[in-house]
Computed example of a mutant assay.
Amino acid sequence: MPDADPPGWELPLLLFAGFRTLIDQLHAELAVRGHPDVRPVHGFAMQAVGIHGASASEIGRRLGVSKQAAGKTVDRLTAMGYVERVDDPRDARSKLIRLTPRGLESLRLSAEIFERLRAGWVEQLGADRVRLVESSLRTVIPAVGYPVDVPGWFG
């Protein structure tokens, strides 16, 4: 007799545990590579800032949090040297938050580390299985890009 399917509640927990495992491994490696103070929320916030910069309001919308909550995260990232506030060339009354060289370095290192972590999964599971997981997830996930609003969604 074939094994019964696992209960439905297990799927989201397994997906989250896989996500959490990758993120925890990423941050352990970032700490070793000179970024011990970066937390997952900081990574999402730096993604929300993007390579062209963003206003605090835009960052809040992208993160799914209030402008004030985004401002607190930006304040922390500024104090840590990952972002800076500069005059917005589109609006002299506004400030633009943009990544500093340290912020860009942390994102570059993160991408490099994620490549290595994926390679570890390939080593454990095989390339075909990892590609199958990825393509299967792309099939069931709406094609609206990659959300960075996890802080607001969990909040």
Rank of each mutant, 00 (worst) to 15 (best):
G34H: 02
P7A: 08
F154Y: 12
R131D: 13
D149C: 07
P89M: 14
K95H: 10
L14N: 11
A56W: 06
E29I: 12
P101Q: 07
G8A: 09
Y82F: 05
E112V: 15
L107W: 12
W153A: 14
P36R: 05
H35T: 03
F44R: 00
V150N: 02
E115I: 09
V65M: 05
A31N: 03
L22W: 13
V83M: 04
R102H: 08
L26C: 05
R138H: 14
R98C: 02
I113Y: 03
L104F: 15
R90V: 15
R129K: 13
D3V: 09
P101W: 09
S135D: 10
L15A: 12
T73N: 04
L15T: 06
E105M: 07
L22P: 04
A92P: 11
F19D: 10
P12V: 13
A92D: 14
V65K: 01
P7N: 06
H52G: 13
F44P: 00
D87Y: 06
R39G: 00
P40T: 07
R33W: 07
V65C: 02
I113G: 00
F114W: 05
G60S: 10
R118A: 12
L26D: 04
P40S: 08
A48M: 03
P147A: 11
R129H: 15
L109G: 06
L14P: 08
A119G: 03
D88T: 08
V86I: 11
H27N: 03
G53E: 08
G50H: 04
G34E: 06
V74Y: 00
D149V: 04
R20A: 15
A54E: 11
M46D: 01
P89R: 13
Q47A: 08
R116V: 09
V148K: 00
M46Q: 00
L77Q: 01
L132K: 14
P151L: 02
L137E: 07
S57W: 14
L137I: 14
Q25A: 15
S135R: 10
G155K: 09
E105D: 10
R129C: 15
T139G: 07
T21L: 06
A48I: 02
D128T: 07
G64A: 04
P2V: 11
S66K: 05
D24E: 08
H42G: 02
A70L: 02
D3G: 15
E84H: 06
I97T: 01
V74Q: 01
V83Q: 00
T21C: 09
V140I: 14
A56Y: 07
P6D: 08
P142H: 06
P147K: 04
L30N: 01
R62Q: 04
L109S: 01
P2L: 14
V150A: 05
L63W: 00
L132E: 09
L109V: 09
D5L: 15
L11W: 08
R118M: 15
D149P: 02
R90F: 12
R85L: 09
